[in-house]
Design a protein around this nucleic acid. Structure first.
Lengths: 335, 335
DNA sequence: CTGTTAGCGCTTTCAC
DNA sequence: GTGAAAGCGCTAACAG
């Protein structure tokens, strides 16, 4: 079933079919309904390839993501998919799987000629690679940039510094003074921001950050466990730990419980992300919620403007986080 | 950069460029390397739309999935993406979001003309809709069919009956005799199979299923909680519960702990799926692992054969499950 | 309001 | 080995 078949059956030209299908231009009600009848009867659907080739718009958006599975990513992707669906567009999913060094150009991976634009989630591409992409006229936005990138690229991220401050203010308000930070890889911008928020909150409370209390680590459970062990071995143990993501917090909590430290009586723990695991833990984890799905939706909203206007608006959006208080935090116990 | 630009720069015809890019037909080594140089230098990438239009193959596969986020789905999708990547193909993701009744044909949703085939995960389409899809010559496979569908459609699922039997044999071996089942919606084929496995294991142990001990419920935490409450109110409480998915098991465990039943001393619990939550719970959940990523990969492998041979092979694959024993199961305590 | 027509960028016979 | 040329199915001027 091609547009020509439909045209023949309806006794009109292909142009008219195109007009009916795309609701573009004037078509008499009579013709329209005749065409629609034929279409319905024969189940005609326009080929997106052909449409893409001739109009330059495919209705497909490339979404790159390091991995699909961790809920952190799948929630963002769900937000993106959701928003795109409303624009009648679909996602071409490109998990990069750390295959960045594969000899395939980013443009090729973004399925050049098949997509109208891209949403890059936590991309591993260097700022210069992203600049190349811009040069090629490819429309894209970045969600949660890994490093500082060209200011002309629209970005969406969580208010990481403010979020960290929220967490710290909560702990400080509870009376904690020795608050450790288990940070993720310091190369990530999000972590730099969270560290900034951590320090700012301490400063605001008149405290000087103790370097002994900051521990950098990979973003996983094991990293959290290692860091926590080191912190517990300190001469003067922290009364609270602010973990820069929930995985780290889980690792820390495991070690704490294994060492018979009660949470939150002996140790308060705050995570970051508020992934679904947080409320499964016992005690449930206090965590800074990132508006992940909303970040995805917002990314699409920026991208759509970009795709339509064909001009770059330098927009950098930070979405507010929310501290979700659960059972893992409480006032410090008497030593 | 189009194929014509490259041809002009290399001083050959577009046909030759096509041959070089696709490694089809003979090209002299000299010409080839000249062309490759130009391509590399100018970063040319063939437009997938144009290629799709002229060759009929787009290198894109549609993947439908009810929702992206629950890890159950994202793990399958990750497997699919993984396998497709090796075939140099990409995924067009179509979360159906229960929008099944939207007036959009399935074919349109599968982006007809943009994809070479489809992987339908737990599709909500009726058998007859799927038959229509076949009639249109669309190549697709189904992962985890919701109901019994046309036998000519290749399917991949977990060995649900056998998996249920594994769980039951474990409980029976521990000495349990009163084992309740919290099933998911009985319309789902997977649940019918699991029920079959449950009954078969009881029968093999010389026990008659007690209808009082089977409770149907939605596949969520709350459903598990409701079912467990009812079971605990029974005159003669079960000593073990086999929940047909992990969410149900979580709900059941919550209620058990809230009622001061010790797990596993007073009550053993087995889940199904072995989602990442299982090992986070305390006690960690014994669960039947479905090889989700593998199911995704296997689906692709069937689909690739289908796409290449253009003929339907009626293949129905059941992948073995594995019982992962953790802390939530143990011998029944003295009453 | 509707039809004609010229491509969009690529693959693919068929000649040479 | 390589080139010429005919589409693939659709959209978008431009006529009428």
């Amino acid at each position: 079933m091609t547009i020509r078949d439909v045209a023949a059956l309806a006794g009109v030209s292909t142009a008219t079919i195109s007009r009916v299908v795309n609701r573009s231009g004037y078509v008499s009600p009579k013709t329209r309904s005749a065409v629609e009848a034929v279409i319905r009867q024969h189940g005609y659907t326009a080929s997106r390839s052909a449409r893409g080739l001739s109009s330059g718009r495919t209705g497909l958006i490339a979404v790159t993501v390091p991995r699909i599975h961790p809920s952190y990513f799948s929630v963002i992707v769900a937000g993106v998919a959701d928003a795109l669906y409303e624009h009648d567009m679909r996602i071409v999913l490109c998990p990069t799987l750390h295959e960045h060094d594969r000899e395939v150009s980013l443009l090729a991976r973004l399925v050049h000629g098949t997509t109208d634009g891209g949403v890059l989630i936590l991309p591993e591409e260097s700022p210069s690679e992203l600049r190349d992409l811009m040069t090629h006229g490819f429309s894209f936005v970045v969600i949660d940039p890994r490093t500082r990138i060209d200011a002309r690229v629209p970005t969406v991220s969580a208010a990481n510094a403010a979020g960290a401050t929220q967490a710290m203010e909560h702990l400080l308000a509870l009376g904690h003074r020795r608050i450790a930070a288990i940070t993720g890889p310091s190369a990530l911008m999000a972590n730099k921001e969270r560290t900034r928020g951590y320090n700012a909150a301490l400063a605001a409370a008149g405290l000087t950050p103790d370097p002994e209390l900051t521990f950098e680590s990979e973003f996983d459970v094991q990293g959290g466990a290692i860091a926590a062990s080191a912190l517990f071995d300190l001469a003067e143990r922290p009364t609270a730990i602010f973990a820069f993501n929930d995985q780290l917090a889980i690792g820390a909590m495991r070690v704490a419980l294994a060492r018979n430290l009660r949470v939150p009586e002996d140790l308060s723990i705050v995570g970051f992300d508020d992934t679904s695991e947080s409320e499964l833990l016992r005690p449930a984890l206090t965590s800074v919620r990132q508006p992940l799905a909303e970040m995805g939706r917002m990314g699409v909203s920026l991208l759509m403007r970009l795709v339509e206007n064909r001009r770059l608006e330098a927009v950098h959006i930070e979405l507010a986080t929310e501290l979700v208080i659960r059972g893992s935090t409480g006032p410090p116990g008497p030593r």
